[in-house]
Every structure is written in structure tokens, then in C-alpha cells.
Amino acid sequence: MKIVVAPDSFKESLSAPEVAEAIARGWLRVFPEAEVLLRPMADGGEGTVDAVLAACGGERRELRVSGPLGEPVSAHWGWLGDATAVLEMAAASGLHWVPAQQRDATRASSYGTGELIRAALDAGARRIILGLGGSATNDGGSGLLRALGVRFLDAEDEELEPGGLALARLARIDVSGLDARLLGVQVEVAADVDNPLCGPRGASHVFGPQKGASAAQVLALDAALGHFAQVAAATLGKDHSGFPGVGAAGGLGFAARAFLHARFRPGIELVAELSGLAVAVKGADLLITGEGRLDSQSLHGKTPVGVARVASAAGVPVIALAGSLGEGYQAVYEAGIDAAFSLSAGPQSLEQAMAGAAAALEARACDLARVWRMARA
């Protein structure tokens, strides 16, 4: 018997590797002789580096970089043996680095993410995978570009201060100092949103409020990013602001596409490729996936559905375990998931559910294995 376990993390509770290990423990209680392959997954956001390293056996590295508001933070990144660097924007410029009362989308900078890219270049990377999501910033990726040698100048030819709001005074972009090593590197962006840079569905309007932006600041930031896009188009000869996904991570997707010539791919697709999921599911009897919550929104780039597509192509049935099943979760049945179950065995608080997630996953996986054993009898 061959079982593949390929879940996402349970946010603020368990990492994807921890989820996979708990499910495996439950299954092996019933089928100790089973071959259980662990392939922890992620969608490009937080947890992507750890998921890839758990599957590929790469090296986890730490680097002291500039946090969203300029304070030093310790960010991690991954190094694979084929000269591939795996980075998470959130590791350096994530919202979790800024206490709620200090969040300031007008000043927050993605400079630290650029420092991660620079470290990957120093290591000799030939391919850089950059996961977007969970950002504290709304600077259009201008901070990232500064760290890589780009200068943002006002009408007096003075450097602009960090942050998205300052881009309203942008007069000229000097790209002459952009790190030349990027020319020999393939940059791939892992993102699960398709927002443009500006407008009602842009970075500022959709994501700005959760980063501390007031209604007035959202309008000002949107206008500033629009101006940035205009100056960038004049500098580069092409307007990239309307492409799907460039509004991800406070517009960092825009900088990646326009200045780094990044290729955009769904996060789960990239992680599945790196972890060898398609090879793992060949000949498998079952794939078990999961995430903290399954609902109708899980169809839009979320891990369980992406994993199910890979398994379905190999003719492997899929069962999903979720912390909770939300409204419309049945829609996942049309996307390759054959059955979905909630972990909760009864009424409990969110805190209780999160604290007991590992034990609940193990118990539910054991229950599934017992049912599987009956069906095989």
C-alpha cells in the first residue's frame, strides 16, 4: 500500500511538515506496513521554504535583513543543490514583523526581500523562486529594487524615502546600477492572486487596509503606485501594471515582472514541481491533503485543489482533512477531491482547535485508515 500525504500548513497552528507527519502517524497506526510518502505543500506564501526543503532535502539559511519599517530581522531562505534559491517575501517583509498598532503601509519597505535576492545571487543562484504573500508593504517592490541597485529620484534628483507614498514624488528611475547578475538568473514568482497593480482590485484597495492604511491613505497609495507605473513604463518602454498578479504583495509582483522579467506561476504548481509530487503519486492508492479551512474559496489557487489536480491526472483518489469546512466546501468535489472531513469532534474554541490540531489530525487519519481497511476487506 502506497499513501501520499501532501497537505498545506494549518495557519498559526502547524507547519505543513508537521501536518503531514501527524497524518502519517494516524495512518500507520492501522497500516504499519504501508509506504507513506510525505510531500508537504504550500501556495507560495508563508511556509513555502520549509515545505520545499522538507520535500527536497535542501539547506535552510538565515540572513539578517532590513524589516518592513527598517528594523533588523532574521529571515530564512532555502538553497537547493541545483543552484535554485527559494525565497519567501514574508520572511523579510511580512506583516508578522510589525505589531498591529505600528503598521504603516505608507512607509513599509520591501528592501529586506531585495537583500534576500542579493544573498541568493552571492551564493551563485541560477534560478530564484520568490513566493509572494503575507506582506506588510505597499511600495510596488521599490524597496526590493533599491536593494538590487535601482535608484528612485525626485525632481531635485534626490533619493526618495522608503515606502509607497513617497512614489508620488517620483521623477526618475535610474536602473544603471541594477545588479547585472540578474541577467543570468531565471526568476519565478509564486503567487495565488491575479490582482493588477492599481484600481479597485489593485494592491492598495484590496490589501492596503489590512496593512494599516486608512481610506484616505488607500487612495493616496493607489495614486502613488499609478504614478510609479507611468514612470516605469517611460523608463522601460512597456507598461506592466495591468498584468494579472502584479498587485500581489503590495505590488512587489510589479517590480518582479517589470524589472526582473519574472515568470508568474501558481504557487502550488511550483511547489508541487519542486517536491516531485507528480512522481510520488504514480502508483499510489490514495493521496491525503488538507489545510486549515476548506470552503468555496479553496477553488482559487489553494493547495488542496492544486494537489488534487496532480493526483487526479494519475488516477489517484484524494481525501482532504480540514480544521473546518466552510460554506460551499462541496465545490471542491468538482475539482478532484473525493471526500472532505473536518477535524472537530465537538464544540470547541478556536484556541482549543489550534492547540489540539496535531492530535486531531492523527486521530482523523487513523479513522480514515480504519474505514479504508473495511472497504478493502
Score class of each variant (00 low, 15 high):
377 A>F: 15
312 S>Q: 15
10 F>A: 05
2 K>L: 09
142 S>Y: 14
303 T>L: 13
316 V>H: 00
256 A>R: 02
265 R>Q: 13
265 R>V: 13
59 E>K: 14
297 Q>R: 11
320 A>E: 04
246 V>L: 05
152 F>P: 00
361 L>Q: 09
133 G>S: 05
130 L>W: 02
315 G>W: 12
67 G>R: 03
112 G>W: 03
358 A>G: 10
100 A>K: 14
368 L>R: 05
292 G>Y: 08
286 L>F: 11
66 S>F: 11
112 G>N: 01
234 A>F: 07
377 A>N: 14
52 V>W: 00
49 V>N: 00
191 A>G: 03
76 H>L: 07
38 L>D: 04
115 E>S: 10
369 A>W: 07
242 G>Q: 15
93 S>A: 12
205 H>R: 15
361 L>H: 08
268 I>W: 02
82 D>N: 14
210 Q>Y: 05
78 G>M: 05
216 A>P: 08
39 R>S: 03
3 I>V: 15
48 T>K: 01
171 A>V: 11
336 G>I: 01
196 P>S: 07
37 L>D: 08
352 Q>G: 08
227 H>A: 02
10 F>R: 04
295 D>W: 06
92 A>W: 00
345 A>M: 13
309 R>D: 06
212 G>E: 10
266 P>N: 13
13 S>E: 09
242 G>R: 15
31 F>Q: 01
118 R>S: 15
156 E>G: 14
44 G>Y: 00
